[in-house]
Computed example of a mutant assay.
Amino acid sequence: MTMACRGVTRAGAPRWMPRGACWKRLLLALLPVLLGACSGLANRNAPAFSEVIARNDNYIIVRASRDATSRSLAKTFLGDAGRYWLIEEENDDTPVRPGRIVVIPLRETARSGISPHAVQTVPVLCYHRFGDRDDGMMISARRFEQQMAYLRDNGYQVIPLTALLEFLEGRQRVPRKAVVLTIDDGHQSIYKIAYPILKKYGFPATVFIYSDYLGYGGLTWPQIHEMGRDGLIDIQAHSKTHANLNKRLPGESRAAWLHRIETEVAAPTNKLREHADTPVIAYAYPYGETNEQVIDFLGQYDYLLGFTVFPGGNTAYSYPYTLHRSMIFGDRGMQAFRKALNNTMSF
């Protein structure tokens, strides 16, 4: 059989110089040989180890082993089981099954999430408190678990804040249905209610704390350390006192106002670095409001991201100091939750 795509070689064959990704043509050419015109391979015919059929600099094509999964293939061929979603998206979310031909991308494409017809947006959800009822900013444990189950069951990939940063900087592609979870203030209910549910689903989340609240009604340092040990909970800054930084106090001079803003920006990062030994890269503005002066101080204190509470998703070209977050309210139901998960912006 003559292959028209010189960028791809069969396993064990001499390697030609790559000339582009033609895996679809290769796959169509190989299928009759591999499958014998059958509709599929039975489990008993699947190899014990995933067999490399062909590869080039951009793709590897394998026949899945009896126990292969997208995670195991990602660990073997990409070096990171957490990159399984790249394989799933490349194969149009077709499940990995014994004997099935699977395309594994070796290089990320479309890191910006921009296509001719739409732009990928990453929604960031904003929670506050958790309790025994659904009311305003309070979410019941039952409702929160329902929402997390919805994310899992509908193919959403909860990514950490660092992955969003890399997406904004053009360094990393994120899943098509990526979503970021954040929780503001640092209330005790985060540890008692939200954390066990997040741990159950394996979802990372960022908690934005205002530092004067820690240990005085809010989370304690032992709780923060415990939540941070498994790598799911990331602690970032939400000011010192939760004051509205857009508003000057009665009789406050401009110089005093600027000094107060600087204190509200600097204090939480200093405390977090002292007690939690965590890189502080993000700041959630109290009440979601900001201005040029606050953003200037964020840059001076090495913050890389600033979050408002303006609803909507974030594109790869969003301004990193005015990122959007959608507030999740306890009394608005699942329809509002689903609406907050919109992850495309069509042209």
Rank of each mutant, 00 (worst) to 15 (best):
Y191S: 13
I159S: 14
S189E: 06
Q172N: 06
K177H: 06
S189T: 11
G155H: 01
D153Y: 01
V180H: 15
K200V: 00
K177V: 03
L198Q: 11
D184S: 14
V179D: 03
F203Q: 02
V174S: 06
I209C: 07
G186Y: 06
P196H: 07
P175Q: 10
R142Q: 11
H187W: 11
K192I: 12
I193C: 03
N154E: 07
L161C: 02
L164A: 14
P175L: 10
P175K: 10
K177Q: 06
L214E: 02
G202M: 05
I193H: 08
V180R: 13
S211H: 04
R142Y: 06
V180A: 09
S189D: 11
I197Y: 03
D212A: 09
L181I: 13
L164P: 11
S189K: 04
R173Q: 11
I183L: 10
V158I: 00
A178Y: 03
R143Y: 14
F144T: 02
K192R: 15
P196K: 11
I209Q: 04
I197T: 08
R142C: 06
K177D: 05
G170Y: 13
S211Q: 03
K199R: 10
K199F: 03
I183K: 15
K199M: 12
T206K: 08
I190V: 14
F208L: 08
Q172L: 04
F167W: 05
G170W: 15
T206W: 11
F144K: 10
P160T: 14
Y201R: 01
S211E: 07
P204Y: 08
Q147V: 05
R173S: 10
Y191H: 15
M148S: 04
L198V: 07
L168A: 10
K199D: 07
S189R: 00
A205N: 09
G155F: 00
A178G: 00
Q146V: 03
K200F: 00
R142S: 14
I209D: 05
L165R: 13
K200L: 01
E166H: 12
A178I: 02
K192P: 02
Q172D: 04
H187E: 10
L161H: 06
A205C: 10
T206D: 09
A194G: 07
P196S: 11
I209W: 01
E166W: 07
I209M: 09
Y191M: 09
Y191E: 13
I209T: 10
R152A: 11
T182I: 10
R142A: 12
Y210V: 01
K200S: 01
L151W: 02
T206M: 12
R152P: 02
K192D: 09
D153N: 13
L168W: 08
R143C: 14
Y195P: 06
V174K: 15
L214M: 07
F203M: 05
Q147D: 15
Y201L: 05
I193E: 12
K200N: 00
A178K: 00
D185Q: 12
A205I: 15
V207F: 09
E145K: 05
Q157R: 08
